[in-house]
Amino acid sequence: MPIGMSLLRKSYRMTVYLIRRLLSSFLLVIALLSVVFFVIHAAPGDPLDLYADSDLDASQRDLIRQRLGLDLPVWQQYIHWLAAVLWHGDFGTSLRQHRPVREILQEAIPNTLLLTVAAFVLHFLIAIVAGVLLARHRGHPWERTATVSGLAVYSLPNFWLGLMLILLFSRQLGWFPTGGMMSLDAEYLPWPRYLLDRLHHMVLPVLMLGMGSAMATARYLRNSLSEVLEQDYVLAARAKGLPERTVLVKHALRNGLLPVITLIGLSFPFLLGGAVATEVIFAWPGMGRVTIDAIWARDYPVIMATTALAAVMVVVGNLLADLLYGWADPRVRLTTKDVP
């Protein structure tokens, strides 16, 4: 049956494409980890400081040096470290907290993910609504205001925005808590109120993180939509007698959002970077906060781990965005043989 055969062929091609992408992403991850390792080890100073507290006496240091294998050539150290990371997810032990870095990360990463995913959703919600409105009402006086305010939000320091949000909504008005993920006694609250408390604590940080470049994305979507709305197939859809709302959502938006999907990939580094500031301002126990604390404590295993992981998350995010785009646009899905 010809239909069956072509479907089989299509899924084979897709699988091959997927495997290639996964492989190259994996190699990229290894490269990223290597960069982190060598940057740290290229720093001046005694490498032992990277792994042990500096206030130990000489004999203890030599013992540790031997135990950690720091007397081995750098290449061997690199291989050991890389293997530990890839096979066991073992980034070593935190100098400050004296427990496996992995544990620290396991606690911190979900918190950061919570923040960034929520901010991501907010960002795109604002962007889509604003983008559609702007596209529908081109030349409206609102457009000027929207562009200017968008630029203003884009240009302000995000940590300062967080502080101002706290100043206004938390200190002055008392509507929201100043920071933290939940109230002190939250664990004892019944389930619905616990949820509410958590959400309550999320409002300001998510606002700070998600608002940043939402208008820039909105403008991007507006431009893409405007182009789409000029297309013949939109006119043809109207000629069929479809209501304007259907034309807009089903035909125009479906195409107009495609370029925006590529923006999703670009927003990951931005969101992760913003999360650092957000977590510092709102005392949110996530990866960013952990990184900053680690920097003050010169806790290098942690710093290496978080930096490497941040980069890995960006790669994964890009991969997902690429796959999403490939799925959404049939022209890409069904005609790519191999994409570099």
């Binding site: 197939y233 209501p243 959404a328």
Partner: peptide
């Protein structure tokens, strides 16, 4: 406008010049 829309497609329909761009690619 809504009443007018009822005529499109049902009573009168249109075929456009550029088949390549008159069909939604997705």
């Amino acid at each position: 406008p809504d009443e007018r829309r009822a005529y499109r497609g049902r009573r009168m329909a249109m075929v456009f010049q550029e088949p390549a761009s008159s069909l939604n690619p997705v």
